[in-house]
Design a protein around this nucleic acid. Structure first.
Lengths: 192, 192
DNA sequence: GGAATTAAGTCAACATGACTGACATAAATG
DNA sequence: CATTTATGTCAGTCATGTTGACTTAATTCC
């Protein structure tokens, strides 16, 4: 299947099509071949989110809560502004889910020590417990998928996913990801 | 579940953590390491959808329209029931966006020849044109990411993404993906 | 041939999570 | 002291998902 002509193009551009059909290893991948990856990505993401979504329903939460809880736990001590930048949503959208997570005791805020306007976000014990439950099926899925992808897949997949991120976002992403603190021995995950 | 050490757990399990730092290649990946992939997947998907989302706004459409148009174009002639199974949404949700796409002339229906209750879905010329425009930035992104991931990345990434899909869904996914009909020479994408 | 099933469409009501725009408060900065 | 910044909040809207009930047309089963 891979190949040559492309299901999206109008009949007109047979010109390009002919050129693309070149023999040997094509330097440029055909659109049809690439679209298959788009589809796989859709299916993968669709199923990746289904397990936690089901659990979240029992708590009256949605996927947005999972995302907030994830970043607050894994990068605990981040500011509200950081979270907005990571999630790429508006303050109002974040406000709603964050408030619910705080009200129900999954997240706490503390004023920043240097700048007391800042609200640094931390998970509570039950926040950690909930996230752990949400993440469990995803971790299993990821571990199995990396294994199924064969040896060396971890590096290739990591590079692939990193390169899928907008170039201008990559520094921010690596910065936040490297700051992802293994929680210290008392489990309080203080800012690093 | 999987585990060895894990950044989500309470202080208690320092025991387990110590064991995980073991020398040599760990057979099981740590939760912290795996969570990084979950995060990368979130960022990758977040940015993967941003370009088409921006274009869709100009048409008064949303991401749901893109998904429908994608599957109808790439697997043209599929039934409404197929689409529901692929998207995992309800008939009512699909109905709304499908109706809009039909009303605005991006998709047409035809009764099935064997079973005339079935409505087979086909893109129109403008449907193909719109999808092409939506997919263009995604194709570029995918091509660059595969290239950046290094030689052999295509196979590894494909296997990874396939393995991320629910096991029971994989046969259906490969079946629909292999049925992705190259449109015939007049570009009308008749049923194969 | 008539009953039951199936594919699709639709009406109504509701929830979630995005959005815009405006405005308030407290703290830091110039 | 004036301005800017970080955060929070009110109010309204939109897109997209959900349940549940029901209709119509066509096929299949007996």
């Amino acid at each position: 299947m891979t190949d040559i002509n492309d299901p999206l193009s109008e009949p007109l551009d047979a010109k390009r099509r002919a050129g693309a059909a070149a023999p040997g290893k094509p330097l440029r991948r055909s659109d049809a071949e690439l679209l298959a990856y788009a589809e796989l990505l859709f299916f993968a993401y669709r199923d990746f989110t289904r397990d936690p979504d089901a659990i979240l329903r029992d708590f009256g939460f949605g996927r947005a809560h999972h995302r907030v809880l994830h970043f607050v736990t894994r990068h605990s001590g981040l500011r509200v502004a950081d979270l907005l930048d990571v999630l790429k949503i508006t303050k109002q959208s974040l406000g709603r889910v964050l408030k619910q997570l705080i009200d129900k005791g999954y997240i706490v805020q503390r004023a920043g020590s240097a700048d007391r306007r800042e609200r640094l976000l931390y998970p509570t014990a039950s926040g950690r417990a909930l996230l752990k439950r949400l993440a469990a099926p995803q971790l299993i899925r990821l571990a199995e998928a990396l294994k199924a992808a064969g040896p060396g897949a971890d590096i290739v997949v990591r590079r692939f996913l990193q390169a899928m991120i907008n170039a201008e976002e990559r520094p921010k992403v690596s910065s936040i990801m490297s700051s992802s603190p293994v929680p210290d021995s008392d489990g309080n995950a203080e800012v690093s």
